[in-house]
Computed example of a mutant assay.
Amino acid sequence: MRYFLDCEFDGFGGPLISLALVPADGGEEYYAVVEHERPCIDWVERHVIPYLDTVPQALRAEPQPRASVARELARWFEAFDDVEILADWPDDIAYFCRLLMTGPGEMVTVPAMSFRLLNLAGFSTARNSAVPHNALHDARALRDHVVHRGY
């Protein structure tokens, strides 16, 4: 299964705030908000935080601890044998992988995964997103762009 990933985080190197996975084929989407310290940096407070709930009602949830999101994600992936995750920014992959780690030497169980970092020079998820800087809408914009271009 092929998924497009986007994450929002509190500035360069700051904690993960939200993440979304959107399937290439239009199947079930995943969206989670991670508990985080407030206030965030000024830019994030203005451009990310107000839009965390601008997702379909079925995907809305209260912010959860990182470990809870990791376990939820592991359960969500149980139906898959092999997953390819595509992203257009290296930090998205790094934050996703860090989320899977739940302690020293421990991680949630996930299927075999491969990651593909796409260099989409000139493309901006924010400029093409229905709700810029919302992980779900940005992941959808990335999917639409990549699928339209035939990658």
Results as ranks from 00 to 15, higher is better:
R2S: 14
F4D: 00
L5G: 09
L5C: 02
D6N: 04
D6T: 00
D10L: 13
D10C: 08
F12M: 10
F12I: 13
P15H: 14
S18V: 03
S18T: 05
L19G: 09
V22D: 04
P23W: 12
E29D: 08
E29L: 03
Y30I: 06
A32Q: 03
V33T: 10
E35L: 09
H36W: 00
E37F: 15
C40I: 01
W43F: 14
E45V: 08
H47R: 14
P50D: 12
Y51R: 05
T54D: 15
V55I: 07
A58M: 04
A58Y: 04
L59G: 04
R60H: 06
A61Q: 14
R66N: 06
S68A: 15
L73D: 11
L73W: 10
R75C: 08
E78M: 09
A79L: 01
F80G: 03
F80P: 00
D82Q: 03
D82W: 00
I85S: 02
L86W: 09
D88G: 00
W89T: 05
P90K: 08
I93T: 06
A94R: 12
F96K: 00
F96G: 02
C97K: 15
C97P: 01
R98Y: 07
R98E: 12
L99N: 10
G103T: 12
V110D: 08
A112Y: 10
M113L: 06
F115K: 15
L117I: 01
L117E: 05
L120G: 09
G122V: 09
S124V: 07
T125H: 11
A130W: 06
P132F: 15
L136T: 02
H137V: 06
L142A: 07
R143N: 01
D144Q: 08
V147Q: 13
G150L: 07
